[in-house]
Simulated scan of single mutants.
Amino acid sequence: MSLSGKKITVIGAGIGGLTAAIALRKRGAWVTVLEQAEAITEVGAGIQVSPNGFAVLRALGLGDRFRQIAVQGQAVELRDYRADSLVARLDLGLLPEDQPYFFVHRADLVDILADAARAEGVKIRLLQKVNTVEATETPVVHLANGADMKADIVIGADGLHSRLRPVLNGVTAPFFTRQTAWRAIIPNVIGHPNVSRVHMAPKRHMVTYPLRGGELINIVAVQERTGWAEEGWQHKDDPANLRRAFGDFGGDAKRMLAAVEDVGLWGLFRHPVAPVWHRGHTAILGDAAHPTLPFMAQGAVMAMEDAWVLTDALEHADTVEAGLAAYQARREDRVKKIVETANGNAWKYHLSFPPMRFGAHMGLRVVSKLAPKKLMQQFDWIYRHDVTKG
């Protein structure tokens, strides 16, 4: 089925939506992106783009430009929270040369994607709040301003609060994990190397890595607690609360926490993977279909993979319905495994029973020194998966 000339509406100008818009436009579709904000902006934050995500950017012709604004990661370090001593090191240099790993400011990646989309001829319409979508063979997007938009295909890439997901699946209540996360960006006050550091503590951990040529540091700090917190990074908190929760952290971690002046707080919730991703000529992707906890750093990357596979599946199907069904079939098992792995990952950093914590850290030290390739190989199923070649 040729996509040439098809009118496709994408809801949401985030990473997944813009990636889909570029991929679809490159195959001849006429693409309009609807964004409810008054400008394409992202809350200041860092993300990690592993090799499987970079493969999509490279296939879209954005690899070189992305390299200019991202920091290439050298390693992931697991460290003890109090002494700030190294427990284990995962050497990203063991990845093949053509499969690099990056740290990037989310806003910088969105800027690249938005510029590329406009250069391809994608129309990006701001201040377009969607009320609902008619998920039929002739889909209609109903906007809050009273306007209706018809399209041949509608893609919901509008995240956790998607307007299309409940049309396809009904409303489901998320499950509070009893974990909250703080997020902040600070100046690079410690000369942070080009590595991701995971500072592990009983019932807490903190992840840090550099951004923008090493000028900034991204901080995500997670704590287990019974107190409920709302979902969404737009909720601000007092930096003193963050420092109090992680007050026993030492070394560089302590110095980084002292530099925090502005911080967001997010309650971490588990959302089920949507059982239905498509109906008629509509489909959802990224967080709209399969929200994931941040413990595998794969949320944005999965959205990029979705965007590529969706486009490829449509192009190689006889009908729109068959293409959308093939898209879900090709993606569902992989994203479920990612979500399940992320759900079960936090406890590994939060061990609190001293003998168990000591034994686990000792085991990591031994494997890190004697079999470093083994540590990296456990992630081959994620990092070496290239949707652009399948």
Rank of each mutant, 00 (worst) to 15 (best):
L242P: 00
L211T: 02
R183I: 03
A201I: 10
F269W: 14
R197I: 09
V220I: 13
D238M: 01
A181G: 09
G213M: 02
A240M: 04
R183F: 02
R270C: 11
A229S: 14
G191F: 09
I219M: 09
V195M: 05
M256V: 06
N218E: 12
N218R: 15
W182K: 06
L211P: 00
I219L: 15
G214K: 03
P202D: 11
W228R: 13
M256N: 06
T226N: 09
A245E: 11
D262F: 03
F249E: 01
A181W: 06
I185E: 11
Q179P: 10
G213P: 07
L265P: 12
N218V: 14
E215V: 12
D252F: 04
D237N: 02
G213E: 13
D262V: 07
V263N: 06
I219G: 10
R197W: 06
K254Q: 13
G227S: 09
A245I: 02
N241E: 10
H192W: 06
P202A: 15
P239E: 00
D252Y: 07
K254I: 07
V220F: 10
P239F: 01
E261V: 08
A240Q: 07
E231T: 14
V189G: 12
L268K: 11
S196Y: 04
D248P: 03
N188T: 13
R183E: 00
L216H: 13
P202H: 14
M256D: 05
T180N: 11
T180I: 15
A221G: 10
F246Q: 12
T180F: 04
T226V: 11
D248T: 13
A229H: 14
K203E: 11
G191D: 09
H192C: 06
V207D: 04
P193L: 13
A229R: 12
K254W: 02
S196W: 01
P239I: 00
V195P: 00
A253Y: 09
P202W: 12
L211S: 01
R212W: 10
L211K: 02
A245Q: 09
A253Q: 08
N218L: 13
A259C: 05
A259G: 05
G247L: 03
I186L: 10
N218Q: 15
P202G: 12
R225I: 11
W266R: 08
H192M: 13
H199C: 06
G264D: 05
T226W: 09
G232A: 10
N188W: 11
R270L: 13
A221S: 10
K254S: 14
E230P: 12
